[in-house]
């Protein structure tokens, strides 16, 4: 568990915004700073959860790691090699190793393809399998791995003939067919029914142990992250504000934002109906085009003092073993 498989250093992705004529004449540029200096390491065989509200940059981070978009700055290391900028051939080899499961299993599969065609597509792209029969055999093997059995029942189905959970299994089979070592899973269960969610996560854990995979699990849902992930990083407006092991982070959160997120999560326990829940933070996440000065969280933070507004944003510092937080005041607040 000690070998670092993926590391990102000060990763940035800024999207240019439309300029007004005046801004254009003055040569001004404005940016949507979706990811703005994110650093973390993921060890081999680990499930790393990346958590945040919509618009915090978690999906963009996933796309950067998948090399679907080019970073504005920073570096990505995979197995110690710098993969920030790759030649087309090297990129193809990288994508065999690093695969992605998308949120929407309805949109991520061609409705005109039978399942064996869906699964054969990555094989064709990477020139694996000599003929149709061989590809079909590989497809059947991948379906067996995700427990869509007997595979022969499923190979000739169209995606609309599958339930939501089965579709997400099929999508997982498609990522597994290239035998990757690293999987970016972007909200893999958020569109699946509650009754099958646990089953899917369990299956993902099983294949992880079986095949020695590493996951980057991107989600907005703290409850499944606690269950599924080994370590969790909380993102806010393009930065990581807190990072630690799943249990430590949720049982002893240090950042006011993490605390608020945890306080807001509903729990299936009785006697809360007439309770108006105390939510320690106000308002909603601001746009990444207008990032507040100082600590990005200060306008919503109940503990913000002058320093938080004026000092440069706090860096992630180690607060305990394996537990890092980016807050000037975490010691006084704890």
């Amino acid at each position: 568990m000690s070998e670092v498989i993926l590391e990102v250093k000060d990763l940035k992705k800024w999207f240019p915004l439309k300029r007004s004529l005046g801004q254009w004449l003055r040569g001004q540029r404005t940016w949507m700073r979706a990811v703005d200096g994110v650093s973390f390491q993921i060890k081999k065989g680990e499930i790393f959860g990346l958590i945040g509200e919509s618009g915090c940059g978690k999906t963009t981070t996933g796309k950067l790691i998948m090399k679907l978009i080019e970073p504005t700055g920073g570096q990505i290391f995979f197995r110690g090699e710098d993969v920030t900028h790759l030649s087309p051939e090297a990129l193809k080899a990288y994508k065999r190793e690093v695969q992605m499961i998308f949120q929407d299993p309805y949109a991520s599969m061609n409705p005109r393809f039978r399942l064996h065609q869906v699964l054969a597509e990555p094989l064709t792209i990477h020139r694996i399998g000599a003929n149709e029969q061989e590809k079909r055999a590989l497809a059947a093997e991948a379906l067996t791995k995700v427990k869509l059995t007997p595979a022969s029942d499923f190979l000739d189905r169209f995606s609309h003939m599958l339930s939501g959970g089965q579709r997400q299994r099929a999508a997982t089979a498609r990522t597994l067919i290239l035998s990757p070592s690293f999987i970016v899973a972007d909200e893999p269960v958020s569109m699946v029914d509650l009754s099958t969610r646990a089953e899917l996560l369990q299956m993902m854990k099983d294949i992880q142990e079986e095949l020695g995979l590493t996951y980057l699990y991107i989600t907005h849902d703290l409850s499944t992250a606690r269950y599924f992930a080994d370590r969790i990083a909380v993102m806010y407006l393009g930065r990581i504000v807190e990072m630690g092991t799943a249990d430590e982070l949720i049982d002893h959160p240090l950042h006011p934002y993490t605390k608020a997120l945890i306080a807001a999560v509903p729990e299936p326990v009785p006697g809360r109906v007439n309770l108006i829940k105390e939510i320690p933070i106000k308002g909603e996440i601001p746009s990444a085009a207008q990032i507040p000065s100082g600590c990005r969280f200060h306008p919503r933070c109940p503990f913000a003092v002058d320093d938080c507004r004026h000092l440069t944003a706090a860096k992630l510092i180690l607060a305990g073993p394996g537990h890092a937080v980016a807050c000037w005041r975490y010691k006084e607040l704890d």
Partner: peptide, 17 residues
């Protein structure tokens, strides 16, 4: 359904489905 609902404030090793 209740057993399949993940709980944040409790560590569970295995969720039911």
């Amino acid at each position: 359904l209740m057993a399949a609902t993940p709980r944040l404030r409790q560590k569970v090793d295995q969720l039911a489905f």
